[in-house]
Write a protein that binds this DNA or RNA. Structure first.
Length: 644
RNA sequence: GCUGCUAUGGCUCAGGUGGUAGAGCACAUCCUUGGUAAGGAUGAGGUCACCAGUUCAAAUCUGGUUAGCAGCUCCA
């Protein structure tokens, strides 16, 4: 007999009992919804035999890990269906994702959505067949025989064997896949399936290798769950900034200007102006010195900074890069080497440090043509850039200050809950991508880790995500498509100061090399605007809304009153517009509502006679009649506190 | 850059199998002066992204270019 600890309750079972049998003994409901098990904290199949005392947790679709097993099995089912329909297919990898899974398929014509119904139908058949999913440990030789016709699987097999990993396969009916698991007990529970899209991906993520067709799918135990998911996805896409940002006239693009070069229309320009003023003022209060440096420089500067060697493909170069006999300029992709010149303007003392330099800085990056996306990924953008030149002993405090500032900004914008933190490190196996020595990197990363741990920040590590000059703390955010981008970054740089000959005279009278923190406080304005539009579906908080109030006179008789109102609000600093057109009131309200204008002030004869306004807020349709002063007090408070 | 999809008036879209264009919204003018999400009439607006090719004939077929979308790779 063994003792199994089920979330605190100890039960006795025969040795060798399976996790599934334990689930059954607890209840058929749990047994039926079980996806996987967790034995002593390790996720495994429900078939796993328990041979000694252990803790056991039954994972269902409601658990993250149960879901992963569910989707992983569904991925195998999709591969199985594809194999039945396209026997020539070669399979790459097919992992589960945060929502659903994908499988990379080679050797076939790329799939299009037209091919999905047949594959989905075959998957449903596989579900109906209710095939048991069984695991088997194999030897390298067995694997070579099994996957003789599967070149990608063979490559993985050899690699796993080389690493000394246990080789295992999962079989369901006529399909066997190289896989570590865990998986469901059988294919029968995967009832509601939808293939989402087919795209392309490179084998092993390497653009020099084969192109595979990546098919994305999602599945649920119940059809109703799938329907809810699809509806939610459709809802999310309505918030796409690339759609509403154009509809609400925040930005546009023009073919002849070029990719990644959006035109900010008056609405977008206004929001960015408001954000910039706020950032610059906030930074000033935190001791930042404002700078304004050139947007381009001679090639010589980038040679010193390392950009010429490490970032040349990402730069717009004006002139012949290879002709050393002629002057050659490049638009700046980063502000660092320019802003350092401010520091270098005269000799610095330890008393000058920390020196916090801030700049609203426009940058140019020659992204590959497929990279652009609305306002999120562009070729020219403006960033709340800053560099802190500091003594080594000031590193932790200044780093914390940068993080506090970033968090303050995020919380004010309402994005604080939506971000995640990534500690971006270098990859010691790709040293050519980075400046500096292994020792320097280990020191910088060690210091950063210490600081992050001190701050108790919950972060993930990203290997090979660092800047070429140092490790980063990246504050990541997802767009409506679930794609993650960096919103804010704070970086430690122990290399560039030396390259630029930046020093300070210490208390000891000797020259020392400072550390530098590169950071943004709100990130790049275009990207931030994009994410705000998505977050609020266009209904930005009043304080940053391009038009805050729309005055709607009901008839011509109130035009004079409306004009006075307009002037009064404008004098109070409110961004107001008045709709003098001879349209019906309902029509004007509809338009203002679609434009997401926070407040509509409807004025008719009644209001005019009593000197009142009928206030209709975008978030609540019922109108409230009040005096102009009362309305002003309310909206001014909302703006001053940056209420969301 | 790669793969797939796409490109018709400012916007959203119709235009089987080739015979040189249509709707709604928006816009303009006029009528309407109406109490919380679309009043009516009339009108203007398009070398069907661009460049070649096939054809008696191309919005429609083919190739290229540019741009847009998703994914990959890359990055703020």
């Amino acid at each position: 007999m063994i003792h199994v600890d089920l979330k605190g309750t100890i039960k006795e079972f025969e040795a060798g009992v399976s996790a599934a049998d334990v689930a059954k003994s607890i209840g058929m409901g749990l047994y039926k919804s079980a996806c996987a098990a967790k034995v002593n904290g390790e996720v495994c199949d429900l078939r796993t035999a328990l041979t000694e005392d252990c803790s056991l947790e039954i994972l269902t679709f409601a658990d993250e890990e149960g879901k992963q097993a569910f989707w992983h099995t569904a991925a195998h089912m999709m591969a199985q269906a594809i194999q039945r329909l396209y026997p020539e297919a070669h399979f790459g990898i097919g992992p589960s994702l945060e929502d659903g899974w994908y499988y990379d398929v080679g050797g076939v014509k790329p799939f299009t959505p037209d091919d999905f119904p047949a594959i989905e139908a075959e998957m449903k058949k596989i579900a109906k067949e209710d095939l048991p999913v069984e695991k088997k440990i194999i030897t390298l030789e067995e694997g070579r025989a099994m996957f003789a016709n599967q070149p990608y699987k063979l490559e993985l097999l050899e690699e796993y064997a080389e690493k000394g990993w246990e080789l295992s396969v999962y079989t369901q009916g006529d399909y066997t896949d190289l896989c570590a698991g865990p998986h469901l007990m059988s294919t029968g529970v995967v009832k509601a399936v939808k293939l989402r899209q087919a795209t392309s991906a490179y084998w092993r993520g390497d653009s020099s290798k084969d192109r595979l067709c990546r098919v994305y799918g999602i599945a649920f135990p119940k059809a109703s769950e799938l329907e809810a998911y699809v509806a939610q996805q459709e809802e999310a896409l309505k918030r796409d900034h690339n759609k509403i940002g154009r509809e609400l006239e925040y930005f546009t693009t023009v073919d002849s200007i070029g990719q990644g070069l959006p035109i900010l229309l008056p609405n977008g320009s206004r929001v960015i102006q408001l954000l910039q003023r706020w950032v610059e003022d906030t930074e000033q209060k935190r001791g930042y010195l404002l700078t304004k440096t050139p947007l381009m420089a001679k090639r010589d500067l980038y040679k010193i900074s390392g950009h010429w060697d490490h970032y040349r493909d990402g730069m717009f170069i004006l002139g012949d890069a290879d002709d050393e006999s002629k002057e050659c300029f490049a638009l700046r992709p980063m502000t660092c080497p320019f802003q350092y010149q401010v520091y270098l303007n005269r000799k610095r003392s330890y008393r000058d440090l920390p020196m916090r330099l801030g700049e609203t800085s426009t940058l140019f990056r020659n992204e590959d043509s497929g990279e652009m996306h609305g306002l999120i990924r562009v070729r020219q953008f403006t960033i709340s850039e800053g560099h802190l030149v500091i003594r080594p002993d000031q590193l932790e405090e200044e780093f914390r200050g940068c993080l506090e500032l970033a968090k303050e900004m995020l919380d004010t914008l309402g994005l604080g809950e939506d971000v995640s933190y990534r500690f971006s490190q270098w990859d010691p196996n790709r040293k050519d991508k980075y400046e500096g020595t292994t020792e320097q990197w280990e020191e910088a990363q060690g210091l950063m880790k210490k600081i992050l741990d001190h701050l108790g920040l919950d972060y993930k590590v990203g290997v090979d995500e660092a800047a070429f000059y140092g490790p980063k703390l990246d504050i990541q955010i997802k767009n409506v498509f679930g794609k993650e981008d960096t919103l804010i970054t704070i970086q430690i740089d122990m290399l560039l100061a030396e390259k630029f000959g930046m020093t300070y005279v210490g208390e000891d009278g000797q020259e020392h090399t400072p550390y530098i923190i590169h950071r943004t406080s709100i990130g790049c304005y275009e990207r931030t605007l994009a994410l705000l539009l998505e977050k609020y579906a266009g209904a930005l908080p009043t304080w940053m809304m391009p038009t805050q109030v729309e005055i709607i006179p009901i008839t011509d008789r109130q035009h004079e009153y409306a004009r006075k109102l307009h002037e009064q609000l404008e004098a109070a600093g409110i961004r107001v517009e008045t709709d003098y057109r001879s349209e019906k009131m309902g029509y004007k309200i509809r338009e203002a509502q679609l434009k997401k204008i926070p407040y509509m002030l409807v004025v008719g004869d009644k209001e005019m006679e009593e000197g009142l306004v009928a206030v209709r807020a975008r978030k609540e349709e019922k109108a409230g009649v009040m005096t102009v002063d009362a309305f002003l007090a309310q909206i001014l408070k909302e703006i001053a506190t940056k209420e969301r």
